[in-house]
């Protein structure tokens, strides 16, 4: 049992979920503090993406508790509500809106009224314009702002998706394999970007790239078979015999 602290941003306790009898998460407990950057590693099928599905309301847990900011029960809310509460998510497979321009992708992600009438009568204010330009510069897509997202390279799509997350202004960012398919240079830049983002909010990053995890230099959680195997600094975790046997040694 993890002790529940009112300051805790995200709190999962004893979360289990099974798909057709297969236990994807097995009594998982996990805590993220405000302003924390946390890395998650683990073999394929460990349940890393499933954990994000649970937090963002895509999948309901069979048992266990999921609380945000102390007392908001996430298991009772749907995807849209959870996003509006301030949890943003980047998917494992980059999903941007291909038929929209880079600019429109960011405009859609912007943390503004999301109702039917709010969007119907939305006008781009100077403030929103500046915010989008700022994000474009951060994710280095200023030159591509008027191009359709479909035309971006794989790495640029990953970055656009990170930009969309920034536009959402979430308090908690869940980032699933952000550097998959990126070049080494892009990977290094992404590490810098994520560290920068984590200055103002909490970020949870799932990644297989150990070099990238080392670059981040933060607390690491290793998942395997749906529960936490080890937690601590990268050196501590990567020297854990269970982690070597289950993940690194493979």
């Amino acid at each position: 049992m993890t002790e529940k602290n009112p300051r805790t941003l995200l709190y999962l306790d004893g979360v289990s979920v099974s798909f057709d009898g297969f236990k994807a998460l097995n009594s998982l407990s996990f805590v993220v503090e405000p302003g924390e950057l946390r890395a998650i590693i683990g073999p394929n099928g460990a349940g890393k993406t499933t954990m994000m599905d649970i937090i963002t309301g895509k999948t309901r847990p069979d048992e266990g508790e999921v609380f945000f900011k102390g007392d908001i029960d996430l298991t009772k809310r749907d995807e849209a509500e959870i996003a509006q509460l301030g949890i943003g998510r980047k998917f494992q497979k980059p999903t941007v809106f291909e038929n929209h321009t880079v600019w429109d992708n960011l405009e859609l992600a912007l943390n503004r009224g999301r109702g039917v009438f709010a969007t119907l009568f939305y006008r781009l204010t100077g403030e929103d314009k500046r915010r989008i330009e700022e994000i474009l510069a951060t994710v280095r897509l200023t030159a591509r702002r008027d191009d359709l997202a479909a035309g971006l390279s794989h790495g640029q799509k990953q970055w656009l998706e990170i930009g969309m997350l920034l536009a959402q202004e979430p308090e908690l960012l869940l980032v699933d394999e952000p550097v998959a398919g990126m070049t080494d240079a892009e990977t290094a830049e992404t590490a810098i970007l994520l560290k920068d983002i984590a200055k103002t909010r909490s970020v949870v990053v799932v990644e297989h790239d150990m070099g990238f995890i080392r670059d981040l230099g933060v607390k690491v959680t290793c998942l395997a078979e749906g529960s936490v195997l080890a937690e601590g600094s990268i050196d501590f975790v990567s020297n854990d015999p269970k982690v070597i046997e289950n993940y690194l040694g493979r």
Binding site: T95, N99, L108, T119, Q168
Partner: peptide, 28 residues
């Protein structure tokens, strides 16, 4: 042509992504 229209195209192409941006797809 409004932002609402952009949300429609977004949900047409990637419905679940649109939900994770906080849009109530069913209302749209």
């Amino acid at each position: 042509g409004s932002k609402f229209g952009k949300v429609l195209v977004a949900l047409r192409d990637a419905e679940s992504r649109t939900r994770f941006l906080g849009y109530r797809v069913e209302h749209m």
